[in-house]
């Protein structure tokens, strides 16, 4: 079983307690009604699907209940980093260092 580190519980817990909640750092615009259909589609439906590092939201749903963000490698399923909701997206340099 995969163990996932929860930044709020400060411990590794079994994957069965967690739920993936989609891509992280999607910016929802304040004025959606002013968007073109193309921009809305891109924001609302189109997601990255990288072979490599994916930036994701996760929720410790059967634990502390908190949402947090994680960098997960989609090939190896390794969690490279987890950080609390609201913290800055890691820079591309930092991500590159993590996969080395």
């Amino acid at each position: 079983m995969l163990l996932i580190h929860c930044p709020y519980c400060e411990a590794d817990h079994p994957e069965l307690e967690f739920a993936n909640a989609g891509e992280a750092h999607i910016v929802r615009p304040r004025e959606m009604s002013n968007m073109s259909d193309e921009d809305f589609e891109a924001m609302f439906f189109i997601r990255d699907n990288p072979k490599g590092v994916s930036l994701e939201r996760w929720r410790h749903v059967h634990g502390c209940g908190r949402f947090f963000n994680a960098l997960r490698h989609t090939v190896s399923d390794t969690f490279l980093k987890v950080y609390k909701a609201g913290e800055a997206r890691p820079s591309n340099d930092e991500i590159a260092k993590l996969i080395k």
Binding site: P14, E17, H62, G63, C64, G65
Partner: peptide
Amino acid sequence: VGACSRTI
């Protein structure tokens, strides 16, 4: 002893 947690 004394530890607690929500889990499944």
